[in-house]
Design a protein around this nucleic acid. Structure first.
Lengths: 130, 130
DNA sequence: CCTTGACCTTCCAGCGACTGGAAGCCCTAT
DNA sequence: ATAGGGCTTCCAGTCGCTGGAAGGTCAAGG
């Protein structure tokens, strides 16, 4: 398989796949003409990576997850720990964003949004007082 | 005021303040020794920027917000539109993260987390099937 | 007067995870 | 022979800082 086919099947842009090779996540073969040749196992890894990235794991987490996946002497506790740590980060991030959302939505509600200059959003930013 | 004092009062690292000057958000004066000299108005702007950034506005949004703040012929509608667009982005982001959180938390729950290798988290990543 | 240490300056590089674009080779079909 | 699409590499840019190096400045203490 060439990179275009794999990109389609894995749902990742060719650029991303080349990048993953660059950083050593996959190592496809090469044809005599220099083209990358992907095995089923490469496609499988790429799909794995795509799903892990979609869950927000960092590239380094993905590297670890792949290694765990390929190590059949792994302890599921290692995977769970990684996932749990990541979950905690996501929950932090959500809490941050929720706090922004609340403040912003209050500010937006309080602003007339007409052609007069008075604006509680700017007043808040200027003074830190609501 | 020197950069250290301003950094303290505005709650921003000196590096960030220099960066904001670099990109033209503020233009402090200069002492004969080359040190930056900050006026009250600079401090005020920096505090404004700090609060806008804390609400997640991009630097370019901040630039626009500052310009609107300093234009007393502004229409509050322009500010509101900007804030509303930003709010929408935040809500999108929250929805994305919530979706990750749900999936991840299910996966974490389903994983024994012991020293055996069987792991539904890895199975999910490998196959996309739960 | 000299040194120490805390401050300030500029400049350059790196983070994460790609993404865009340029320049050029390869393959197939007409 | 040419046109097109796909492939290659390499370099630069994204965003908002942040770290570090190399060096100038200033106030206090010996």
């Amino acid at each position: 398989m060439n990179i275009g086919d794999v990109a389609q099947k894995a749902g990742l842009p060719p650029k991303t796949i080349r990048y993953y090779e660059d950083i050593g996540l996959i190592t496809p073969l090469r044809d005599t003409n220099g083209y990358r040749v992907f095995r089923e196992s490469d496609l499988h890894k790429l799909a794995f990576l795509g799903r892990a990235r979609a869950l927000g794991f960092t590239i380094e987490d993905c590297r670890t997850l792949l290694a765990l996946y390929e190590d059949d002497t792994r302890a599921s506790a290692d995977v769970k720990d990684l996932a749990q740590a990541h979950l905690a980060k996501i929950e932090d991030k959500i809490a941050q964003l929720e706090s922004m959302r609340r403040t912003l939505s209050d500010l937006v509600k309080s602003c007339a949004g007409d052609n007069r200059p008075d604006c509680p959003i700017l007043s808040d930013l200027a003074t830190g007082q609501h």
